[in-house]
């Protein structure tokens, strides 16, 4: 334990505190002393009473502000969580897109599929068969030329 001498309202008080807490205790005593000095006149007890009331008022006000700030900090925490979740999702999407891009780069170039291959192919087949007929007829005619 440490012994500390506190000067408040012109009087010295000997108090004990845990080792290492002396600066903090001196600091608190200075705050009380400042409040006491802020209201001159009256007895020492009255000065200490008003200082205590003012400090209690400040403490209550600080608690009120903290309570009001809590919902805001909850909203902020929720916003941060949402942003983190979206960031993770965006990172996953980016990763997938990169993988897709790499796969496309590695894939051999291919001609785009015809708009309607199912209908286009039979039509081409028919045209080819017709041409085969015509060329066969031509070949026969050329072979028969005198």
């Amino acid at each position: 334990m440490a012994d500390v001498k506190l000067g408040i309202a012109g009087r010295t008080y000997d108090v004990h505190c845990a080792d290492g807490q002396e600066p903090q205790l001196l600091n608190l005593a200075a705050v009380v002393d400042e409040k006491v000095r802020a209201m001159p006149g009256g007895t020492e007890v009255r000065q200490l009473l008003f200082a205590a009331l003012m400090l209690a008022d400040e403490a209550q006000e600080a608690k009120g502000k903290a309570a009001k700030a809590e919902p805001q900090s909850d909203s902020l925490r929720a916003a941060v969580a949402l942003a983190e979740s979206r960031e993770a999702q965006a990172r996953d999407e980016l990763k997938a897109a990169r993988a897709e891009l790499d796969a496309l780069k590695k894939a051999p170039p291919s001609n785009p599929a015809p708009p309607n291959p199912a209908s286009a192919k039979p039509s081409h087949d028919r045209a080819l068969l017709q041409i085969a007929d015509r060329i066969e007829t031509l070949a026969t005619r050329i072979e028969q030329l005198p």
């Binding site: 087949d125 068969l129 041409i131 085969a132 060329i135 066969e136 031509l138 070949a139 072979e143």
Partner: peptide, 13 residues
């Protein structure tokens, strides 16, 4: 099949 026929006909020509 059609392409095969065309090739053979061209060869005949």
């Amino acid at each position: 099949l059609a392409i095969g026929r065309i090739e053979r006909a061209l060869s005949r020509i």
